[in-house]
Design a protein around this nucleic acid. Structure first.
Lengths: 180, 180
DNA sequence: CATCCCTTTCAGAAATGACAGAAACTGTTG
DNA sequence: CAACAGTTTCTGTCATTTCTGAAAGGGATG
């Protein structure tokens, strides 16, 4: 590491937030650097290039490159080109609802969908095994739950963000619907 | 490991499910063993004692002990005592909705609450730092989102499971509420 | 109150995942 | 097409987490 600048060149709030977000991400199975870069971009008014991110966070160039790619896979970071600068600049999505929606979508794709498929397989393959009648029931319940969540997610996904956000804000309406 | 029995003594469905659940847990920041034990107990008709779990999964006794404690912290596994047997037996919650609700509650407590607190701190501490005006706005948005989620969660939590489950099942009603 | 059975704690070992640095690659510009 | 700026891939190293095995702890029973 031959860094010239480090995180201390950032305002204290951002430092604090970036650090926490890193640890947070970790607990949800996201690498620290990925989460930190996201936090940095999210709180940055202008897009940053990879080198800047390196010096701010004090991590290797390659690490930044891979993490940025991951964030792009999540769909919450985009490449931007600034006039007169050949370097890629990166910018985070800023709308919190859109952001969480994107994350949800990707987690669903990566984790829920494969699980649902596996549960279905389990059901099929054990169909005539009498030793696993109980287990099959339990797995069926789980499958129903995941299927329901998926269906619900799909419908939700079609809702415009603004509407969903508003609904969440005035969640009493939603709860009225839930009461019956 | 001087195990006498192993996972092969379980029906294939359960093996498959336990293995997948383990990997799944992992991606969500839960240790493989913890998730596997949960899967095992969830699909088991009768409560199991620690030794049984050891042999089924082929892991160390202490690992099982710690993992069981963790599952109890999550509130999804309970100790049961069988007449004529001094050993603790363990049983998973079986209702899928209740289970996910419990997990949600614990994740909120462990991760959302501390984050919300940190975001508030960030806001306070940077109140008169002009360099971080933009960041403060972003962090404010995030705080609003987390606060909303928390409020919504609290209300939801009061709903009886059955009602929530039914509402989810007939989610069209819910979506109607969301449309406005 | 000594024994037995079971559980938990703890310190070190093993596995895993994250990361650095170098090398390879890509595309742009004079 | 050579030089260059920037990005990505790859391999080995390091940090962290998970797990093991041994030892200590707890509490019921004769």
């Amino acid at each position: 590491m031959t860094e010239t600048v480090d995180m201390n060149s950032l305002p204290p709030v951002i430092q604090k937030f970036v650090l926490h977000w890193g640890e947070m991400g970790r607990k949800w199975g996201i690498s620290r650097t990925v989460a930190q870069i996201h936090a940095l971009l999210y709180t940055s008014e202008k897009p940053l290039h990879a080198e800047e991110i390196c010096t701010f966070l004090g991590v290797a160039r390659s690490n930044v490159s891979n993490s940025l790619k991951e964030l792009q896979n999540w769909g919450i970071v985009k490449v931007v080109h600034l006039p007169g600068d050949r370097r890629d600049h990166f910018e985070s999505m800023k709308d919190v609802y859109e952001m969480f929606r994107a994350i949800l979508a990707e987690r669903k794709r990566r984790e829920v969908d494969p699980t649902l498929q596996l549960l279905k397989e389990c059901q099929k393959e054990s169909a005539d095994d009498e030793d696993s009648t109980y287990a099959r029931t339990r797995i069926g319940d789980l499958q129903d739950f995941f299927q329901l969540s998926t269906d619900f997610y799909k419908k939700m996904d079609k809702l415009p963000t603004k509407a969903a956000a508003k609904a969440l804000r005035t969640s009493d309406r939603l709860l009225k619907a839930l009461r019956l």
